[in-house]
Amino acid sequence: MKRMIFAVFCLTAGIGWAQDNDESKVEKTEKVDLRMSVIESIVVTAQKAPVVSTDEPDEDIDAILGEVESLENEDERK
């Protein structure tokens, strides 16, 4: 009899635990969906400021960018 009661108790507790787990999963999914819709509605509006380089000059980088620029200017002339 004791064993029977213990088995019924374990079964009930197990079902309860599984249900709680399902509910928390659903809750979590709903929370993520809600947050995703908020994130999706945020529109980035900041404008680009005029570029005045304050970083240190670098000859290697200047040379590469110069090469790219002259190539692009050449392409545009064509």
């Binding site: 980088i61 090469e67 692009e72």
Partner: peptide
């Protein structure tokens, strides 16, 4: 064409310079 130069020459730079 420009992208090719950036990728080829950028590969030889230090990480800090690549970012720059």
């Amino acid at each position: 064409n420009g992208l090719r130069i950036i990728l080829q020459k950028g590969a030889n730079l230090e990480p800090d310079q690549q970012l720059k």
